[in-house]
Design a protein around this nucleic acid. Structure first.
Length: 807
DNA sequence: CGCATTTGTCATGGT
DNA sequence: GGACCATGACAAATG
């Protein structure tokens, strides 16, 4: 910076001296300064600020600010030359005008000194840069290599035509100096300059063809090497991916079988988790069932040491804990499902081997998968997962909140066992586990755990213990925990931000449903029907949904991809359907039905037109459950006919499914008729609802339009009134004027004309005529009988007595 | 009981 | 031709 500053100053000083005709060569002190030497030798030119560039002559595209390179002799010669200019000798001005920039050799113009150093070029009139010894050079070589050309007289001259051609040729790299054949000496000189670190403006390879080729070859080789390396990396990655998939598939096939009809994956009865017979019917596995199971197996001795809300906290007898480390395989299923999806977490899986060893009671895949889902970089604690992973994590963590309210130290053994049972759940039970989902300290705890004494099996040995800290804020009763769960989830959904944008939360959906009455539309529900599976509604209804057919949990396995969903795990299924929900109508009609029920059971109160007081929305709202309409009648008839379908099944299912339903059971004609009837009426009912909504919308729009039209009409009426008022004014004015003019007229005797006998009329050309009334009558009668042209009337008037008045 | 409103159903026509 | 949708008309349910 300082150097640059001084350089600029010195250059300016040099120019000043040259202007004042001071012989720079004679000032030894000055010229011996290294900076001045650099200026002269051109070394420092590279430091010149970029503002020089604006002085570059636009006619010489190859010039650059870096070409201020003059040898000592050249600079002296140039300086002498300048000094000898008669034009300069005559100048004795206090105003500093400097920087000879362009001009002929004999007639160098001086341009105003702007205070900034600039490019020095002595330019011939015909755009050929002239070296100071008087030789004409091609512009490119002169501009780019002024130093070389100055000291080298071997450079051949080139004509202006050649120059123009060269300028047009922009392919510098291929042929940077057309018309300028560099000899070996030239190249040697360039080499010397290059070794002296003289800035030539371009790389050395530009001059040396062989060097250029060599560099290009090197570059190509490097590129090839890089490509090969990338290719091998890609192959390696693909291979790893494949292996992982095979492993997962193998595990799935070992533990599950695929239903030939439905395509669902069903757990084998002899699977690794089958020891928990209680949960064998895992399709209908619910939290309630799990809690029931737990409550029946609580080791009362342990309860003393646990701050447990009975009925909430999963707790196990020691035997069960050691024998069956995975409670309710649904989690295992869900995790396994997710494993494939999250297969990129391989490194994590490897890094958790210690933990897996500790959890050796568990099938490795299960644990790894469950841990896999967290997607944590164990070194940093950062979440490395994608959105899906975060969602699963979110879901799981929420699940924990429902179930875990443990206190620390005293329950270490249980905690360990619990940890074995819910590896994702109580990894750090003695640590103050802050379930604030935003902070994700829970995840950090995993990292801590991993770094802790896993090998010796003392999982929590190194973890600081705060026995006074509960894992959760309180022992939350089940229902409250559900609420808390929802609330927490809502909070976390904010942090998820756009990721959670599908707004698939029950609370939101419920509020939307609640809004429907007011906004009079099921469109929102319709959208939710199409796009949102509302997984949380399932979770929230776990306590009441034992007969809910397990729709949400079947969906995952009925999907063709085993990784598409963590089925049957209430914790793992939350978001699983979002990605595929767009096809729910086709792929998962049952699930759609579950949602569709919300869409059907609407309050179809009409829209409230703007400006009207909203009607009482709840007027008819409570009646639906008590209503004994055809719906219940149909249900009854279905039961009478022993038809194994619900009304919703019949109405909401797509045609294909509906036809399969009819075919799958041998139904009588009456049964078929009833089913078709129910479907038709149900469809029509929805259609009627939609139709009414549309009708209301049309009415609203029409009323809006009517208001607008009324406004427009009022405006037009107002305008008309204004115009009529103006017209009246004009008529009055005209009347006054007419009277005034008429009374001013006098006949030959100086008497005023009788207004009953004469009247004033104006022709189209502006003349005012005094017309006798008889003429008027004739005229009017003429005009009434036949159209009389203005000219004819005028002629007739002219033939009569015509009075012109000067006033 | 009469009225207004909502809702379900039927018939019909269109896609 | 069947499925589906839209809509007018009617009737039942409801407040």
């Amino acid at each position: 910076m300082i150097k640059e500053y001084f350089t600029d100053g010195l250059i300016g000083l040099a120019i000043l001296l040259s202007i004042f005709r001071t012989d720079l060569v004679g000032i030894n002190n000055l010229i011996n300064y290294p900076e001045v030497q650099e200026i002269i030798l051109g070394q420092t030119v590279a430091y010149l600020p970029a503002s020089y560039n604006h002085i570059i002559n636009s006619h010489h595209p190859f010039e650059s600010s870096k070409h201020l390179e003059l040898s000592n002799e050249a600079f002296s010669a140039w300086h002498l030359n300048i000094n000898n200019l008669p034009f300069l000798r005559e100048r004795h001005r206090t105003e500093i005008e400097a920087f000879l920039v362009s001009g002929t050799q004999q007639n160098v113009e001086l341009e105003n000194f702007t205070g900034t150093p600039t490019t020095l070029n002595v330019e011939h009139e015909d755009n050929q840069i002239v070296d100071l010894s008087g030789q004409n050079l091609p512009e490119e070589s002169a501009s780019s290599y002024s130093e070389a050309t100055i000291s080298n007289d071997n450079v051949p001259e080139s004509s202006e035509d050649t120059l123009q051609t060269a300028i047009a040729d922009t392919s510098i790299v291929n042929n940077p100096f057309p018309g300028c054949n560099l000899t070996k000496e030239d190249l040697d000189l360039i080499d010397v300059l290059w070794q002296q670190d003289v800035d030539l403006g371009v790389g050395k390879e530009v001059f040396d063809l062989f060097l250029r080729q060599e560099i290009e070859t090197k570059k190509e080789q490097e590129l090839l090497k890089h490509q090969e390396w990338e290719k091998s990396q890609l192959q390696l990655r693909e291979k790893q991916e494949k292996e992982r998939q095979e492993e997962a598939e193998k595990w799935l096939k070992e533990n599950f079988r695929r239903d030939g009809e439905t395509g669902e994956w069903i757990r084998n009865s002899n699977g690794p988790s089958s020891s928990l017979d209680y949960f064998e019917t895992d399709d209908s596995f619910t939290l309630e069932a799990a809690l029931d199971y737990l409550s029946t197996n609580i080791d009362h001795a342990l309860i003393k040491n646990l701050d447990i809300s009975p009925g909430i906290i999963p707790s196990y007898s020691s035997d069960q804990l050691t024998d069956n480390c995975l409670i309710g395989t649904p989690e295992g299923q869900g995790f396994q499902q997710s494993q494939q999806l999250l297969s990129h977490q391989d490194s994590l899986e490897e890094s958790l081997n210690g933990l897996l060893d500790f959890l050796s009671n568990e099938p490795v895949e299960d644990n790894s998968a469950s841990l896999d889902q967290f997607g944590i970089d164990l070194n940093t604690g950062n979440i490395t997962s994608d959105m899906k992973l975060d969602q699963d994590l979110d879901a799981q963590t929420d699940y924990l909140i429902q179930n875990v309210t443990m206190q620390s130290q005293e329950i270490q053994p249980v905690a360990n066992e619990m940890n074995a049972t819910f590896p994702f759940l109580s990894t750090n039970s003695s640590d103050q586990m802050n379930f604030d989902l935003d902070s994700l300290s829970f995840l950090n705890s995993l990292a801590t755990m991993q770094n802790g004494g896993l090998d010796d099996g003392e999982l929590f040995e190194n973890i600081p213990v705060d026995s006074n800290e509960t894992l959760l804020n309180a022992n939350i009763p089940l229902n409250e925990s559900m609420d808390t769960f929802t609330v927490l989830h809502d909070n976390f959904s904010q942090s998820l931000g756009a990721m959670a944008s599908p707004s698939s939360y029950d609370g939101l959906c419920d509020s939307l449903d609640g809004l429907e009455g007011a906004i009079g539309g099921s469109d929102l529900s319709a959208s939710s029907q199409n796009n949102i599976t509302r997984p949380y509604s399932k979770v929230n209804r776990l306590s009441e949904s034992s007969n809910d057919s397990g729709y949400p949990f079947q969906s995952g396995f009925s999907s063709s991809s085993p990784a598409s969903s963590s089925a049957s795990s209430p914790a793992g299924c939350h978001y699983s359907n979002i990605s595929t929900s767009g096809n729910d109508t086709e792929q998962d009609p049952q699930n759609t039905q579950t949602v569709a029920r919300h869409a059907v059971a609407h309050n179809h109160t009409y829209n409230t037109p703007p400006g009207q007081v909203p009607r009482e929305v709840k007027k008819y709202a409570p009646k639906e459950p008590s209503r004994k309409g055809p719906h219940s009648r149909d249900q009854r008839r279905l039961e009478e006919f022993k038809i194994p379908y619900t009304i919703d099944d019949i109405i909401e299912s797509p045609v294909e499914t509906f036809n399969e339903m009819l075919k799958s059971h041998k139904l009588s004609e009456a049964q078929l008729s009833l089913i078709r009837d129910i479907r038709r009426r149900g469809k029509n009912k929805i259609a009627a609802q939609n139709c009414r909504k549309r009708k209301v919308n049309v009415i609203v729009n029409l009323s809006d339009e009517m208001v607008d039209l009324e406004k427009a009409r009022d405006k037009l009426l107002k305008e008309r009134a204004e115009i009529e008022k103006e017209t009246l004014k004009m008529k009055e004015k005209f009347g006054h004027l007419y009277t005034h003019i008429f009374q001013s007229l006098r006949d030959e005797h100086g008497q005023p004309y009788d207004p009953n006998l004469y009247s004033l009329q104006q022709t189209s050309d502006g003349d005012v005529l005094l017309v006798p009334q008889s003429m008027n009558r004739n005229k009017y009668s003429n005009s009434s009988s036949a159209s009389s042209s203005p000219t004819s009337s005028k002629d007739s008037v002219n033939s009569k007595k015509r009075k012109s008045f000067d006033e």
